[in-house]
Design a binder for these strands. Structure first.
Lengths: 136, 136
DNA sequence: ACGACATTAGTACTTTAGTATGAGTCTTAA
DNA sequence: TTAAGACTCATACTAAAGTACTAATGTCGT
């Protein structure tokens, strides 16, 4: 909201500056008038595009952002988080073990402690809860 | 891509029209020049905002839509799809069976044929693939 | 140096998940 | 009405997943 005020202030200033510039252009010759108008139109068109992109991107990216603070607050360790991500991608414990160069029992250990921390009974539930918590 | 060309064509036409209008305005009096420029600037600013909103909203809403055509093309039946959704929510076969008033073996049947259709080995992989295909 | 915790890994066990196969019922389109 | 497909369920497996321990390293801050 504060940014919107700043942007509109900047726009008003820009308009005033362009008014002064256009006066000088008109005095120096008639041919420049059309050019100035065209430049102003194009500049304001792209200002509109840019401002809108800025404001929309925030609404767009927020639901995709990973809540790292929540990961910490749940006390999920690095390894557990890695296992969670690979789990989500649909890998089995054995496949995760191969990918991380660990034994399957280690993955099971991580998975079990992960389920406790996420309050899940199954890996599918863990995935669902992790998504709901915006952890993945 | 075709829309972009149309939009830019429309903008060029709009510019030409405004040039003509501005000429008449300038002839009729000097005081109108600033006003015309301001109007042009504001109009193009909002054109930029509007066009950008249109193009961004499509990118934003598409990933949230369920591709019902893809479900059909994969020949996934209603029951299989129901099982898929409950699977995604983290339920076990037994829990899905209770929810749909079916036996666990029926859920297993649906699940197995679902895995074939989604080319998945596990339920977690089925969930991942279903999300990638925008089926869920 | 000590304690706390993360990481790794094992054994032994229970529980789910998943496959294969067969079979009965029901709907629907040819 | 008959064939096809959807839906249901069962049995008998095998394969994963998950739990409950125990325990050895390693790391890090006090």
């Amino acid at each position: 909201m504060k940014k919107t005020i700043l942007i509109f202030s900047a726009l008003i200033v820009a308009l005033l500056v362009l008014f002064q510039l256009s006066k000088y252009s008109i005095i120096s010759g008639d041919l420049n008038t059309e050019f100035v108008i065209a430049v102003i139109a194009i500049i304001f068109f792209f200002i509109g595009v840019y401002i809108n992109k800025q404001s929309l991107q925030k609404n767009k990216e927020l639901p995709y952002e990973i809540d790292h603070k929540k990961i910490e607050s749940l006390e999920i360790s690095k390894r557990e988080y890695e296992v969670l991500k690979l789990m989500t991608s649909g890998l089995s414990n054995k496949e995760i073990a191969n990918q991380l160069f660990l034994s399957e029992s280690t993955i099971k250990s991580h998975a079990s402690s992960l389920f406790v921390k996420l309050n899940a009974k199954r890996r599918t539930q863990a995935i669902q809860k992790a998504k709901a918590l915006q952890i993945i």
